[in-house]
Nucleic acid binder design. Structure first.
Lengths: 103, 103
DNA sequence: AAAATACGTCGGAAAATGTTGACATGTCGG
DNA sequence: CCGACATGTCAACATTTTCCGACGTATTTT
């Protein structure tokens, strides 16, 4: 599994904020755009990137498009993180590292 | 706490690979550079970015610099992820979201 | 002490990413 | 049907990031 698209999508603050806004519930493209001091088209392109990364879903509703969060791909991030988590949490691991450094 | 530097540092594949290489143990700048098809200076600059993000530590040893992993800042990523994790894991949450979407 | 080694850093080229305004498409209300 | 809306897309420009080779410094080696 390649986490590249997810890391890449989350690398921009605007896109992370979009994700967090959608945590509170689905929103239209327009109402999302209002949350930023950016042109509507810029936000629209950020939405496109999130869509491609599979992090949001788009549903047409009349002339609006309703965006909702699709958090599953974030599991890839968690998986990537897992090995490090044990590393930073475990004092044993840290000690082992120190010993390795010294030799 | 602002996770920006961490997200930003991890947004590049080379830097993520550096991190994962260091998981296996500390390495010199040179031996890290050999793992990539990149000039040494390019890798050195990636190391600089990781250093600034606090994800690696540099220790001089003669004419070498030994890099080691400093995983703690990754906790910020973990923290950022937490709200979503419950979201994608919980079917209840998903159901609630669907209901909200329909109304 | 000269040559070789291990690095970081810097200037500038090249590539990638972000931003905008203009436009096209589809939709709603009158 | 017509004008106002909501939105994605595109070309052009702006900004940021990445990359390289040249250089400087410190440290071993011979």
């Amino acid at each position: 599994m390649n986490a590249e698209p997810v890391f890449s999508a989350l690398s921009h603050p605007v896109r992370r904020k979009v994700i967090s806004l959608l945590l509170a519930g689905s929103k239209t493209a327009g109402s999302l755009a209002e949350e930023f001091e950016l042109s509507r088209s810029a936000v629209s392109e950020h939405l496109g990137i999130l869509r491609q990364a599979g992090l949001v879903r788009e549903v047409k509703s009349g002339r609006e498009r309703i965006y909702s969060l699709h958090a599953e791909p974030l599991a890839q991030l968690r998986d990537w993180l897992a090995p490090y988590e044990t590393y930073w949490k475990s004092n044993l691991a840290r000690l082992a590292q120190q010993l390795e450094d010294e030799q």
